[in-house]
């Protein structure tokens, strides 16, 4: 009972407050922007066609009504929360009459698939290789790995992605230029394998940089940990090196790395905008970008809500599971 009252409930309350404040700020910010969704819709219509100015004014009133943007900001805010609590994020104003739920539903799967897999692969690779390199710093493979990854690490992501795109779609054209899969979704091997095929290059571009980042972190942590008394004691006790590395050293370096993994996974709802652009890959990043450009308040709110909930929940979960990972952390 004390655990619930003194540890879990305060953190849960904090989680709720973070979400409420975050969403409220996100509600206000787009409305301070000069970009107005109705005006943007009208501008798109006028891009090629001559529309009588008086007809444009008449359409403006219609669109305000259709988009539910009539009434004061306070009324819109209250209506927004009413809808959100019912799980309805409202209509997308840039992709009307599609709902924001549909808009997110179409793209979020791609983002979770691409970023989720890439983050897990990069984390596993980076942590394993970094730990090994930190524990065996003078081996040839360790030095080779370190030099390679330190060389790759500072390369800006967009350059790395573009190099991969040019290398494997033009000079050696073995991967597709755009898209997430062939055909439309179906539970068939043909479709599933095409998802992996289309996702390979964007995933590789993310994994390379992310692995380098985590390799450097894991190596530094392992190097520090390796000089600890308990490691030297274990070595003098002639425990197997593998056991010392994975059961003692790596375990003690896990805390910051699990935090990093959780926050990375929580943040994946923000999408991988540059990867999506460079590889023409569908995802929540470009959905958000389009929404911002078009002043699509509802889509901005919906995606941000998802991101805020994702990161806040990741933080909450980390808080809750720290004591399980590291016995030195105690529930207070």
């Amino acid at each position: 009972m004390t655990l619930l009252k003194e540890f879990i409930l305060p953190r849960f309350a904090q989680w709720l407050i973070v979400i409420f404040v975050g969403v409220t700020i996100t509600f206000i910010i787009p409305r301070l922007s000069p970009v107005n969704p109705v005006t943007e819709t009208l501008a798109r219509m006028q891009m090629y066609q001559n529309i009588d100015p008086e007809a444009v004014q008449a359409m403006r009133a219609t669109l305000l009504d259709l988009y539910g943007l009539e009434g004061s900001v306070l009324e819109q805010y209250v209506n927004f929360w009413k809808r959100v609590l019912k799980g309805d994020l409202g209509p997308s104003l840039a992709s009307f009459p599609l709902s924001v739920n549909q808009l997110i539903g179409v793209s979020i799967g791609w983002t979770i698939g691409l970023l989720g897999t890439s983050i897990l692969i990069a984390w596993t690779l980076g942590m394993t290789l970094g730990s090994l390199a930190g524990y065996y710093p003078n081996r040839w493979w360790s030095e080779g790995l370190e030099k390679s990854l330190i060389t790759v690490y500072p390369v800006p992501y967009y350059i790395l992605a573009f190099v991969l795109l040019m290398a494997f779609t033009f000079y050696l054209p073995i991967f597709p230029l755009i898209g997430g899969a062939r055909g439309t979704a179906a539970f068939t091997w043909e479709y599933i394998s095409s998802v992996l095929y289309h996702g390979f290059l964007p995933a590789l571009s993310i994994v390379i940089g992310a692995t380098a980042h985590r390799f450097i972190m894991a190596k530094a942590l392992t190097t520090t940990e390796k000089s600890s008394d308990y490691v030297q004691y274990a070595q003098m006790a002639a425990l197997p090196q593998r056991k010392i590395l994975f059961y003692y050293v790596t375990r003690n370096t896990l805390l910051p790395q699990v935090t990093d993994l959780s926050l990375s996974l929580g943040a994946l709802f923000g999408g991988a905008l540059i990867a999506e652009f460079v590889f023409g890959y569908p995802g929540i990043g470009t959905t958000m970008y389009t929404a911002i450009n078009n002043g699509d308040y509802n889509a901005i709110m919906g995606i941000t809500l998802l991101s805020i909930v994702g990161i806040a929940t990741a933080s909450l979960l980390i808080d809750l599971i720290y004591p399980l990972i590291d016995p030195r952390v105690r529930y207070r």
């Binding site: 897999t117 897990l120 692969i121 596993t124 690779l125 779609t169 054209p173 073995i174 991967f175 597709p176 230029l177 898209g179 899969a181 062939r182 055909g183 394998s193 095409s194 992996l196 095929y197 996702g199 390979f200 995933a203």
Partner: peptide, 18 residues
């Protein structure tokens, strides 16, 4: 998780149209 997507992805016949 590491190996399967790599093998399946790379083993596909090059194809660009959806």
């Amino acid at each position: 998780l590491l190996v399967v997507p790599t093998l399946v992805g790379v083993a596909q016949e090059p194809q660009g149209l959806p």
